[in-house]
Computed example of a mutant assay.
Amino acid sequence: MKKLISVMMFLALMVPAASFAAGPAVKVDKANVDVTNTASLQRGARYFVNYCMGCHEAQYMRYNRIGRDLGLTDDQVRDNLIFTRDEFGDPTRVGALMKNAYPKRDAAEAFGTAPPDLTLVARVRGEDWLYTFLRSYYLDENRPMGVNNTVFPNVGMPHVLWELQGFQRKEVVGKDARGHDEVRFELVQSGSMSPAEYDKAVRDIVAFLSYMGEPIQTERKMIGIWVMLFLFIFTIIAYLMKKEYWKDVH
């Protein structure tokens, strides 16, 4: 029994170590998003409903929650963020969950797999991964959609933001310390945005996805600060009380 416990403890320690040693499959860029920037989140929400919700859903989030957190009225949410209808053909209500009307069976047939729900994607993939992924599409004539991605090779998702970024070509320029390809992108067809503007737009999208994965994160951090401050003050008071109670004992 002791030997079995020792083996289990060894494996429990080795698995995280092996994962850490493996590291990420590709080099990712820092997103540096700011979930406290309301204007950035509003722009990200606009991009999300216009470019992502044609296929993806955010079925664990409600439109009116986004409006409340991002400083938007119900009318603003209805006019700028809702473009779907319910099962009866009526406009989706502001209090509804963020679903789309694309049947998963049809989506799986079109893309090889049903597009995943994106409510928690920032918590699963990470902000840096998403930021790099949305900037790493390149032309590839061997792919059904004509594009590929260095972060997610052979991904079924097309380059939905091509209208903003344009199209770019990938060039392998060397290897990094881990043996991964170092690539350089060359813009061969311009989009409606400059590279700097597109990077900012992607950062807004990632910021919105990060907010959506944990809408209470800013409030949670503030509560944490107040809790730590309370514990610090309480510790001082408890120490002074201890000295007062025990001063006559010694």
Rank of each mutant, 00 (worst) to 15 (best):
A201R: 06
A114Y: 10
G156A: 03
N154Q: 10
F232N: 07
D69L: 10
Q217Y: 06
A110V: 10
E244R: 10
T218L: 12
G54A: 10
I216V: 10
D69Y: 07
G191D: 05
A108F: 06
R123S: 14
K175W: 13
G71C: 09
G174H: 01
Y198N: 08
R43M: 11
F230H: 11
R105T: 13
W246A: 14
F208D: 02
K3E: 09
L231K: 09
N50L: 15
N148P: 09
D34A: 10
Q168K: 08
N142D: 14
I205Y: 01
E219M: 09
N100G: 06
W162A: 13
T235K: 03
I225V: 15
T38V: 15
R135I: 03
A17T: 08
L97D: 04
V155G: 05
N100C: 05
I225L: 13
A31N: 01
E219R: 06
I66V: 05
K99S: 10
P24W: 11
K200G: 10
N148A: 13
A101P: 14
V15M: 11
D181H: 00
S19N: 07
N154E: 14
V151S: 03
S6D: 04
D75V: 14
L41S: 03
E109N: 09
R46F: 07
P91F: 09
A108C: 05
Y138P: 04
T73Y: 03
T150E: 03
D204G: 04
D79C: 07
D140H: 00
S40G: 02
Q59M: 05
V7I: 15
F232M: 11
K200F: 10
Q189Y: 10
Y198H: 08
R178E: 08
Y102A: 12
Y47V: 14
D199E: 13
T119M: 02
V33W: 05
A58H: 01
T113I: 06
I223Y: 14
H250M: 12
V151W: 02
N149I: 11
E171H: 05
W226Y: 13
A238W: 07
P91T: 04
S210N: 07
A122K: 01
T92I: 08
D140N: 01
P158I: 04
Q189P: 06
M1F: 11
I225W: 12
L187N: 08
D75N: 15
K3T: 12
E163G: 14
I5C: 11
P144F: 03
R184V: 12
S19H: 12
F234S: 10
V15A: 12
R93P: 03
K242W: 13
V49P: 09
I225G: 10
L209N: 02
Q217G: 07
F234L: 09
V160Q: 07
F152M: 09
V227P: 04
S6A: 14
R169L: 14
L41A: 04
I223A: 15
M222N: 06
L130T: 02
T218A: 15
H180M: 13
A31I: 01
D106S: 04
E182C: 09
